[in-house]
């Protein structure tokens, strides 16, 4: 009995398959990251529609659930022009696609991450504060992958709240450490970005700190679990644009 479902999704990647077809990786709202063959998806007519970042209405069909299956896609919204207008937005879109394809398990729904991802790609090229959204998105991605950081209280003293003065993150446990408790080991700790504490007054150096922190956990903990030496190169190219 054939399996069919409909959903909406964000196009992450297009791989040409044969002359006219393409395998599309789509982050769907209800079915998670899902692949499928799109007949005609590699054609010139479809090229403007099937750019990473496009919002699609999709129908996935397969004879058996475990098959690759095939897509029928309809474009709902293209974001390519807005994203391509800015080099950082372009780099961010590549990093988002690469991280999700590399690390997010297939066919597992992640509705909160989906909503965050859509909000983020909508902001690319349109909202000047998207770098902060991106850093928070990576933090959320770590959480969805099971490597969430605990920044609610100091790991050493248990202090929490606005007076806890959380200034560091432990690179081993991913827990926050207060300035006083972490002082003697400050050279081994990751500086806490104000952005992660909800401070709205974050600047470019703070974004760089945030990306350094999330990058540490992506490289040191997530990537080895997927037999990779580090997070995808596309992320490194984005981070290089945010050097403090």
């Amino acid at each position: 009995m054939a399996t069919t479902w409909r959903d909406e999704g964000l196009l992450l990647a297009v791989r040409r398959h044969g002359e006219g077809a393409a395998v599309l990786e789509i982050l769907t709202a209800e079915h998670g990251r899902h692949a499928g063959l799109a007949p005609g998806g590699g054609s010139r007519r479809m090229a403007p529609v099937l750019q990473p970042g496009a919002q699609l209405s999709v129908e996935w069909r397969a004879r058996l659930e475990e098959h690759l299956g095939s897509w029928r896609v309809e474009p709902a919204r293209s974001r390519a022009a807005a994203i391509m207008s800015d080099r950082r937005s372009l780099a961010a879109m590549s990093a988002i696609s690469a991280l999700l394809v590399a690390f997010l398990p297939e066919r597992e729904p992640h509705p909160e991450l989906y909503a965050r991802t859509i909000a983020l790609v909508d902001a690319l090229g349109a909202d000047s504060d998207w770098p902060a959204l991106y850093a928070l998105w990576e933090l959320a991605l770590l959480g969805e992958l099971g490597y969430g950081l605990d920044l609610s209280q100091c790991a050493a003293t248990g202090a929490s709240g606005p007076n806890a003065d959380l200034a560091w993150i432990s690179p081993r446990t991913g827990r926050a450490v207060s300035r006083e408790a972490g002082g003697p080991w400050s050279d081994r700790l990751l500086p806490m970005p104000r952005l992660f504490l909800g401070d709205p007054k974050h600047g470019e150096p703070d974004i760089a700190l945030a990306l350094r922190a999330t990058g540490h956990f992506l490289d040191a903990q997530v990537a080895p679990a997927f037999n990779r030496r580090a997070a995808p190169e596309a992320r490194a190219r984005l981070v290089a644009l945010f050097r403090p």
């Binding site: 990473p52 970042g53 390519a80 994203i83 080099r87 372009l90 780099a91 190219r237």
Partner: peptide, 12 residues
């Protein structure tokens, strides 16, 4: 090309 990959390459 005026694609995501094309323009990423151009900026690089």
């Amino acid at each position: 090309p005026a694609t995501i990959d094309g323009q990423t390459t151009a900026h690089y």
